[in-house]
Design a protein around this nucleic acid. Structure first.
Lengths: 208, 208
DNA sequence: CAATGTGGATAGTGTAACTATCTGCTATGG
DNA sequence: CCATAGCAGATAGTTACACTATCCACATTG
């Protein structure tokens, strides 16, 4: 299969496919001449995955590249998952040092109670700290007060996520399913949460 | 307080504050002359909220404007919450009609089992349908097979979310807390989920 | 063998979120 | 009371991102 067909089958314009090739989101086709190449069904699959991560997952092209590179090198799974995290380095000086220290303490306490492994320079931990610090500086700490309850839900969800990966044939499939499940899972769960909130809110407050 | 001080106290550049004023993310100051205005502590709070929704929540300026307009008009709470949803209208024709119908059926079945209120044209429902359809077209239906389990977690989380709003003084505070809790809550929970996954993955697979 | 397609390079487009400059007017310290 | 700095509002410019379009020399195909 060549460009035009790849484009047809994936629904991605030719110009965009070339862009993804340049950006390393899609491996080059098998060369058959100085300016010809052949693509396979793997390219179609990959293209669909890329579009899903971009459109539904909301990742940037750079983030998709990192994630896919990790998938391709068969990195350890937990290493891959952290990459999917949107890195939100708050603008310098936005959050005062005090709020951040407070947040770090919360996270360390939580991690100790849960038995979670936290390295301070893990981007996921930094994201968590930044979010807690922001909540603190907004004066909205109700959520932080229930951090342990949310963490327990997170643990259950992680169990569910893992159970999802059982029975998958090979390691590459497992890693890909983990990435998809995590990234699209965030979007999916956010929507479920909204519906559940709507339901619970209507029950509690009789909102129309 | 005037511009310079508002900028200092909020950490947002003057030019950016003017931009937010133009965009309607920040109400105008109290006029004291044809080209003078005064700002209060409410403006500082609002500015911090705007930055939190933009930076941590990842909302667009347009989305923040919608959410804040809803907060200001004291709309019914569940109406406000849906607005915070990132609307992901997949590129036309990206998902085939079959996958979408399949997804709609799943959502309707789920809603019936859970007692959730779903209107087909609700953007949250559309987001959910689009995500399920994408998972289907990727061939990754493991997650969809466990949709009920995820929905149950969503229900528990919604309970937790609601309990967070108890004891808040006035309606405006409740609505603001709901928005912050939902939007920043998504970010927060995503990070918790990653840490929990890492933990569970290490236990199950002995990944280093 | 002509028309169409191809890979690769390069340049252009559209949008979002700022950022900078300009212009009269205003407040204030000396 | 006036020089200087700051102000609000308007307008234009910038940067980053994700494409999108055009060229070119060569390949394939009817």
């Amino acid at each position: 299969m060549r460009m035009a067909e790849l484009s047809d089958r994936s629904g991605v314009p030719v110009a965009t496919i070339k862009y993804y090739l340049r950006e390393g989101l899609l491996p080059p086709g098998e060369r058959t001449g100085p300016n010809q190449a052949r693509y396979g069904s793997g390219h179609v699959r990959r293209l669909r995955l890329v579009r899903a991560l971009l459109d539904v997952g909301g990742l940037s092209v750079a983030a998709v590249r990192e994630v896919l590179a990790a998938v391709d090198t068969r990195a350890a799974m937990h290493g891959v998952l952290g990459l999917a995290q949107r890195n939100l380095e708050l603008r310098a000086g936005q959050v005062d040092e005090q709020a951040k220290e407070w947040a770090v303490e919360r996270v360390q306490g939580l991690a100790a109670r849960r038995g979670w492994p936290v390295k301070p320079d893990d981007p996921v931990v930094e994201s968590l700290v930044a979010t807690l610090a922001t909540l603190h500086s907004l004066g909205r700490t109700e959520l932080v007060d229930r951090l342990d309850s949310y963490a327990e839900l997170a643990d259950r969800m992680a169990e569910l996520d893992l159970s999802t990966l059982g029975g998958l044939p090979d390691r590459e499939t497992v890693v890909e399913a983990a990435v998809v499940g995590t990234v699209l899972g965030d979007t999916l769960f956010a929507a479920l949460r909204r519906l559940a909130q709507h339901h619970a809110s209507a029950r509690s407050f009789g909102d129309t």
